[in-house]
């Protein structure tokens, strides 16, 4: 497909590669329908250009390469936890998913699926209730937040042997970047941060990489990585088998309940911003 004409989608920063994967050897990938090429120059600086050879603006941050096809009006998300030197930083690698990246964000925000999709890991029957939590579009910072979300989890982290009532805040900073803050079982005064960076390749095709900044000082790197990868693979089965693959902005054919309020807030925010790429209503645009 050719590059999208959706200005809202174009004027944003997108993670497109891991910084460690970039060298003088050009890498080809796609963003919003456009074929792009990435490489490092002789000085090690990351460069990107589009199919026509035009230079694209590039940022290197959080161990990732970010590119824009347009003119973002906001800086890249600020993640304070990435600055804290004592944290374990776990990049989880890229996975390609045959669904809209927006569906992936919606799935990340959702808790009601924990006892079913992530049975005995992030949730377990009969602890299926999603108690009320506030969701808000914070127009001052132009982000979506769901705060004080509580859910019973049997084993939410690699260090956790028994169940706990987890408390989670969710934060969406761009249509394709979402993160959560979770009180760490081993250090209850600090929060783990897990972010999901999504590279929209096409309307119903994306690549995504979770990156974790964890307080856990006990588990091995590979145990934490494995834990997150299992969960991500389970979520992939879901979003690749939702219909439609793109995110509906009109819920006429769905039945959101109070448990879905973070998804509703997210979709309302996308609608207000005028995004169409990756949505059901934008198909063929």
């Amino acid at each position: 497909m050719p590059r999208t004409s959706d200005r809202v989608a174009l004027d944003d920063w997108y993670a497109v590669e891991s910084a460690a994967s970039l060298s003088a050897v050009p890498l080809r990938t796609r963003l919003l329908g456009e074929a792009i090429t990435l490489l490092r120059d002789a000085n090690g600086a990351a460069l990107a250009h589009d199919e026509a050879g035009a230079s694209l603006a590039v940022l290197e941050s959080y161990g990732l390469i970010f590119v824009t096809l347009g003119a973002p009006t906001r800086p890249l998300v600020h993640i304070a936890e990435a600055q804290e030197q004592d944290r374990r930083v776990i990049p989880c690698g890229w996975t390609t998913i045959r669904a809209s990246g927006l569906r992936l964000v919606e799935n990340f925000l959702d808790m009601a699926h924990f006892p079913f999709v992530h049975a005995d890991i992030l949730g377990a029957e009969p602890h299926t209730e999603v108690v009320h939590y506030p969701s808000a579009i914070r127009r001052d910072v132009d982000e979506v937040w769901a705060t004080g979300c509580r859910f019973w989890q049997p084993r939410a982290a690699a260090t956790d042997e028994t169940g706990t009532l987890m408390e989670i805040d969710y934060r969406v900073t761009s249509p394709f970047i979402v993160m959560l803050y979770r009180f760490a079982p081993s250090a209850p005064h600090r929060r783990d941060c897990i972010a999901l960076f999504i590279q929209p390749l096409e309307e119903a095709l994306c690549r995504a990489q979770p990156v974790m900044w964890l307080v856990d000082a006990i588990s091995t790197h590979s145990a934490m990585l494995h834990f997150e990868q299992v969960i991500f693979r389970q979520d992939r089965i879901i979003v690749e088998n939702q219909r439609p693959l793109t995110l509906p902005l009109d819920p006429r054919h769905e039945i959101p309940t109070r448990a879905d309020s973070s998804s509703v807030a997210y979709r309302r925010w996308l609608k207000e911003r005028g995004l169409r790429f990756g949505t059901f209503e934008g198909r063929g645009a």
Binding site: Q242, R243, P244, H253, E254, D260
Partner: peptide
Amino acid sequence: DRCPHRGMRLSF
């Protein structure tokens, strides 16, 4: 093959 809640395939 579509759950009326949020469109997941019921065949799963």
